[in-house]
Design a binder for these strands. Structure first.
Lengths: 212, 212
DNA sequence: GTCTATATTGAGATAGAC
DNA sequence: GTCTATCTCAATATAGAC
């Protein structure tokens, strides 16, 4: 955190660049997201930008990491309890619908990173596993309490949840009228969760259509 | 079908190329799927291939269409009744896990086609809507018969189903050990059960666990 | 209809001055 | 650390011969 020494300064600048890049992608969209465009946007030359990140692909991985960091901070994503998890997750999804460029970059990278040689491969594997672990833990808890169906294993439910989120992003990229959050929430409803704040199991339709 | 006249011959050749391209992508994988590589694979020069399809992107759309055509033929995909729909769908998914290159091409295109200007945009919109219609129809039927939960509208369930399939493809691209079909089937199981108030409906677990 | 050869474009990477 | 300039490469698209 201390900024003395050129090393720390470099780190700070990196962070600054990432924040800025993320911001620009969120606002301006992703388009042909070339190193050059991001460089322009953050006020550096292409060479200046690559000075910090070595290659385009490394840059993109770092941008995604920064995104995760910011999101985890903004919305409490690390809760291992069901309702906070559910709500936090929905908040992120709602937020995503305001940053299409970020969603597009993420989806594109996700496909490219399927190649084990790709610099983002490890990142996606780990991120993916981490999310599933959080889901699994809180779902299992809920299953034990009898509030979520135990017809399907928690691990599998977690995977389904993750798949729906990713899949809804694709549907939403194609047609922006789609309500990602509402659909994911419908899935939560399906799992048998008592709708967010009502006492017993109440009509699910009302509880959580996106509040933005 | 008759081959007289150069027009019909051209069409036949196109079909032949597409079949061949699809076959190659399925077998050899997708890699950096350039026009040139496909051209090599089908035994044409790059220019020769583009003679038929004008541009790379049009070529890819046509390959995807051909894929749909072949799949619809091989697995009865157009049934609007629930169980055939479910079984047919699972068969396609199982088949997909044997053609990673095709899955990768599809996923990649799906993201790129989110741009309304992209030549594949319309294709994806229509394909996507068509699949959802089939799902919706058969699900609604099942809901009326009380065999599928009515906690969530048929349209939304259809969307969830579609999202899970797409999302599982991403997960599977990243980690080939994932069982796409089993996970999607688990979702079907979930739909069939009335969670929380168990006793009423039939045990869904048995009905259709993968037969391959 | 198919090929060879080439134009064109666009990107990422790198060298070297300041 | 940052820039300008350039290299290199890959890929699509096109011209024109056969």
């Amino acid at each position: 955190m201390a900024k003395r020494g050129s090393y720390a300064k470099g780190v700070a600048k990196r962070e600054e660049i990432l924040t800025s890049a993320l911001d620009v992608i969120a606002r301006e969209g992703f388009r042909k997201a070339s190193v050059r465009e991001i460089a322009d946007a953050v006020g550096l030359s292409q060479a200046g930008l690559l000075h910090y990140f070595g290659s385009k692909e490394q840059l993109f991985v770092e941008i995604m990491r920064k995104r995760d960091e910011v999101d985890t901070e903004h919305f409490d994503l690390d809760s291992s309890h069901y309702n906070p998890m559910r709500e936090g997750y929905l908040r992120v999804i709602r937020h995503n619908s305001e940053v299409p460029g970020v969603v597009e970059l993420f989806s594109r990278l996700a496909v490219e990173a399927s190649d084990v040689e790709h610099p983002a491969h490890e990142y996606f594997l780990q991120r993916s596993a981490l999310i599933r672990e959080l889901f699994t833990k809180s779902i299992a808890e809920e299953q034990e309490a009898g509030r979520v169906t135990d017809k399907v294993d928690a691990e599998v439910l977690a995977r389904i949840l993750q798949a729906v989120s990713d899949g809804m992003q694709l549907q939403w990229l194609l047609d922006r009228d789609v309500d990602m959050a509402a659909t994911v929430d419908a899935l939560f409803t399906l799992l048998g969760a008592a709708p967010a704040n009502t006492a017993a199991s109440a009509p699910a339709g009302e509880t959580s259509t996106a509040d933005s």
